Simulated scan of single mutants.
Amino acid sequence: MTHAIRRATELALDETTVTALRAALKTTADEVVEAIIDEVPSYANALSGRMGGTIRRAVRTALGHYLDLAGGIGGGGDAGDAAYELGRGEVRDGRSMDALLSAYRVGARVAWRGLAAGAVSAGLPAATVAKFAELTFAYIDELSAASAAGHADELAARGLAHERHLEQLARELLANAGTEVLLAAAQRAGWTPPGSLTAVLLPAAQTRPAYRLLDPSTLVLDDLPDATGVLLVPDADRSHLLRQLAGRTAVVGPARPWVRASASYARAVRARSLPTDIRDTEEHLAELVLSADVDAYADLRTRALAPLRTLPAGTARKLEETLRAWLLHHGRRDDVAAALFVHPQTVRYRMGQLRDLFPDLTSPQRILELTLAVGLPRS
């Protein structure tokens, strides 16, 4: 407000003129409010009743303050502070900055019309009236700028608070918080719970760019350990999601009810820890199951494949590969030979060796254990 205050004092209107102009303020304020109601749709119902009275008083106060400046009195801070708070309040009332600026434009025009009539009646010279007009609009422009700053600051504060609430909700979901805690967090964040959430793990640097491609209700965190980020995608069409993530280093967990998003996240984390390059966890369920308890799986292999340990390493490796193919192809010799790129007679010979090592090879329990033991190819 410093510039407008300094220039308004240049007018140095006499007390008689200021008194005459002030007498018209109530009528001018009423006309300003009526014009805003007529010309700015967002205020059609907003300025009736108590709110209308509040705005009328605010207009009278702001213009009265300006007349004080023009008459050489007044300090200058109150009107700017009030305009700033007005901008903040418009955010709380759900109105846009465009609506507020439109109201200022209409108000400036109507206010000047009232002030100009008073200035002419008071006998101000034409040059002084012209300067009065220039400084009046400069003053209202600065009020408008103060309101714009308040509007922007309130939006920024609300946006930051909203983002923090969303991030807290995401953290509660990953921590597998209780349903009541999650519902409260969702309400604070203004987030409508979907039917399901799908966790997507990405390098932290890729998380925000990927987020911008997805449903805006997606929850995002990009500050997880190991420079990792996560997206929690609501009600995802899986094939579409995978296409959207093409070209990114993403691991996509399963869809889970939204309160169990931690389960989707946990699976994606585990898939990311495996040596296999997994993108879609649904396509690698066998690897995930067999690697769920590494120690147990190692013990199972040691016990189930113990007979092979009596053989030279090369022979044991070939027999394990043959056993795996035989189990996968249900004993069909030609299919086993094709899978191993060997002659069927070679398969017959190796299977003879395996039957000697595993006399109960065809028993259901032995088949189950061996199928699990050789389920993952050894690197």
Results as ranks from 00 to 15, higher is better:
Gly74Asp: 10
Ser264Ile: 00
Val347Met: 01
Pro359Trp: 00
Asp299Ser: 05
Val181Asn: 08
Leu319Val: 03
Thr371Cys: 00
Val269Gly: 01
Ala205Leu: 12
Asp98Gln: 10
Arg7Tyr: 13
Ala271His: 11
Leu67Val: 05
Tyr297Phe: 13
Asp280Val: 00
Ala20Asn: 07
Pro312Glu: 10
Arg113Gln: 14
Ala46Ser: 11
Asp222Lys: 02
Gly89Ser: 14
Thr322Leu: 11
Ala122Ile: 15
Thr249Val: 10
Met1Pro: 05
Gln187Glu: 15
Gly123Gln: 01
Ala373Val: 02
Ala24Pro: 05
Asp295His: 10
Val106Ala: 09
Arg6Ile: 05
His65Ala: 12
Thr228Ala: 01
Ala126Val: 14
Ala266Asp: 14
Asp334Gln: 12
Ala313Tyr: 00
Ala103Trp: 09
Gly123Ser: 14
Leu21Phe: 03
Leu300Tyr: 01
Phe358Asn: 08
His343Asp: 15
Met1Lys: 06
Trp112Ser: 04
Ala186Lys: 04
Val18Tyr: 00
Ala156Met: 08
Leu219Trp: 07
Ala316Ile: 02
Ala29Asn: 06
Gly77Thr: 00
Val106Thr: 15
Leu63Cys: 08
Thr28Tyr: 08
Ala255Arg: 01
Pro225Ser: 05
Thr19Leu: 13
Glu320Trp: 02
Val33Pro: 08
Ala148Gly: 09
Ala83Thr: 02
Arg171Leu: 01
Leu327Asn: 01
Thr16Cys: 09
Ile37His: 07
Thr9Asp: 09
Ala227Thr: 12
Arg238Met: 14
Glu282His: 07
Gln187Lys: 12
Gln365Asn: 07
Val129Lys: 11
Tyr84Ala: 00
Arg109Cys: 04
Leu323Lys: 07
Pro216Met: 07
Gly352Thr: 02
Val106Gln: 12
Ala236Met: 10
